[in-house]
């Protein structure tokens, strides 16, 4: 059964990644740059003409495949992590430094710069304006599913809440893979999140408001009001996405089909909260509990962040791991 739950964690992450609206933005990176320039111009047009018909990623004279429902950045970085799991982590990242064909979060891009200038972990993740983001928390799904410690990996790109988010996700996924229990999964995460940190405070607050709502979709406005940083410009803070994922997974009693859509409704967090929610619930319920249509749609990587992963089948990747 635990093998099914390991696969569930990986495919669940890809499903959640695909379910959030930013996936099609990331996947549109596979198109020619002029098509995204045109998109930006349409955004300006909509602003100037006050038309509420908003532009969406489109494929004029470009293949339409990238814009179909499918996984994007988070699934690719998870796969990259799995493929290089046995490499010393700083070395694995250093091999990416200087590449101009990859796309990554601010934390990772800055860490690669730091490594290139000779700054080693943990400073590479600490001297970093996005040390708090959830890049390491996404990769921690791999470490948690396989019962490994995510810290060495997390410290390359993150610090503070960013590392705590990775520890919490790894602990949660490991517990879910072992027991399938959402309650024990949440307990395992809280055990590594000190209350006096932002992520620890937010995790307990998110659980409180979600439990009060009693239902994942019903909890969306309360989570937005209690937790979201409406001031800041990026939505991938581990102190927001990890608590939301834990709370929605618990209040959905581990059901991916109930938790992920709710996470996708928190628009500002829709880049990664659905992916983390999918990983947690996928680990609880196992691969068999993931809706069949989503399994098919989310299984193949597009290569929108790491071109060498284009066409990689996540099922092939997870076979043999469990």
């Amino acid at each position: 059964m635990s093998g099914d739950r390991i696969t569930g964690a990986f495919i669940g992450l890809a499903v959640g990644d695909a379910a959030g609206w930013p996936a099609s933005r990331h996947r549109a990176a596979l198109h020619a740059p002029w098509s995204r320039r045109l998109h930006r111009e349409l955004d300006v047009f909509a602003e100037e003409h006050r038309v509420t018909t908003l532009p969406v990623p489109f494929a004029l004279n470009q293949p339409v495949g990238p814009l179909a429902v499918g996984p994007s950045d988070d699934a690719e970085w998870l796969a990259w992590t799995v493929l290089g799991l046995d490499r010393p982590r700083a070395e694995a990242f250093r091999s990416l430094a200087g590449r101009t064909d990859i796309r990554a979060r601010v934390s990772v891009a800055t860490a690669l710069d730091n490594l290139a200038r000779g700054l080693e972990p943990p400073a590479s993740g600490h001297d970093n304006p996005h040390h708090f983001d959830d890049a390491a928390a996404i990769r921690a799904v791999a470490f948690g599913a396989l019962g490994r410690d995510p810290r060495e990996d997390a410290q390359v790109t993150n610090s503070g809440d960013g590392v705590l988010g990775a520890l919490a996700v790894a602990a949660a996924v490991a517990e879910a893979v072992a027991t399938g229990s959402p309650a024990r999964m949440v307990g395992a995460a809280l055990d590594v999140l000190p209350e006096e940190t932002a992520i620890g405070h937010n995790a307990r607050l998110a659980l409180k408001v979600a439990r009060a709502a009693g239902d994942p979709f019903g909890a969306v406005p309360a989570l937005d009001a209690a937790l979201l940083d409406h001031v800041y410009s990026y939505g991938v803070g581990a102190a927001q996405t990890v608590p939301v994922a834990l709370a929605l997974a618990e209040v959905a009693q581990g059901s991916l089909g109930r938790a992920v859509p709710a996470a996708a409704c928190l628009a500002a967090l829709a880049d990664s909260a659905p992916a983390l929610t999918g990983a947690l619930t996928g680990a609880c319920g196992g691969y068999g509990a993931i809706p069949e249509g989503w399994r098919a749609a989310a299984g193949t990587l597009a290569g929108c962040c790491l071109p060498e992963l284009t066409g990689l089948d996540l099922m092939d990747l997870t076979e043999g791991l469990s």
Binding site: F132, N202, D229
Partner: peptide, 12 residues
């Protein structure tokens, strides 16, 4: 404080 300075994402 100190949570007021910790919970937003621009503390640095």
């Amino acid at each position: 404080p100190p949570l007021t300075g910790l919970v937003h994402q621009h503390g640095w």
